[in-house]
Design a protein around this nucleic acid. Structure first.
Lengths: 118, 118
DNA sequence: CTTTCATCTCAATGTATCTTGAGACATTAA
DNA sequence: TTAATGTCTCAAGATACATTGAGATGAAAG
């Protein structure tokens, strides 16, 4: 993830509806959700939803595939972890006090406390 | 860090000049830098720089204090780590595959490989 | 083949954001 | 006090973004 990609991802996430869509899709898992179901969850009109999904897909944060008459959207986990890694790499340069608290907060989530790879 | 704060922080970082300012200030350390020095590094006019610094300060990502005739800006580490934690907490809900790679990337940075707190 | 359903595309509108330039304000030095 | 320095504020203009509504497209059912 370079600066340009990070800017695209940050810009895509810096909007209430889109941030919520991403959160929804992450919890929805790899199968994702049909556009209609996302729209229902968001309370958004079809064109508004399409606008934001297109934006998220252009930023690489979600992907889509047709499934019958529906189109299913799912989160691109690599893009999210890439963004987080970018922010950490960026921020950590000689300043562990930035990311140490973030790492500590990881313990509170469902992640395995991954043995520190070398 | 709640959703509103995260949106403010993401919006502030989703702009080339501001993202670079934050990177610069993080590496500059707690003493920060005078506005003039930041502007010189960015190649930005004073009013343009002021606009972005004000935006970053409103988002809580940087703070300022007067130092003689200069005003020194420094990164707010808590805000950055809070945002990273928000994104991780968000993404990890039942989906460790999102943040595990990000954690792995931590090993490559200057951070201590923090014993997993409980 | 026609209808229905799910979603997308387009144009229009309003709002927000970024940049510029001129000038104001605060601080220090002469 | 006057001048110089560093930074901010304000108004104006250009660009980008978000939302709406109407209609087009693609897939499936009758």
């Amino acid at each position: 993830m370079d600066e340009t990609q990070a800017l695209d991802a940050l810009g895509a996430l810096a909007q209430e509806t889109r941030l919520r869509i991403v959160r929804l899709l992450v919890t929805a898992g790899p199968d994702g959700m049909a556009a209609g179901a996302i729209g229902e969850a968001m309370g958004a009109t079809s064109s508004r939803l399409s606008f934001h999904l297109t934006h998220l897909e252009a930023a690489g944060l979600v992907q889509s595939r047709r499934d019958g008459r529906s189109i299913r959207y799912s989160a691109v986990y690599d893009a999210l972890s890439g963004l987080i890694a970018f922010l950490m790499r960026d921020c950590c340069q000689g300043h562990p006090e930035v990311c140490t608290p973030a790492v500590a907060s990881l313990a509170a989530c469902a992640c395995p406390s991954s043995e520190p790879a070398e």
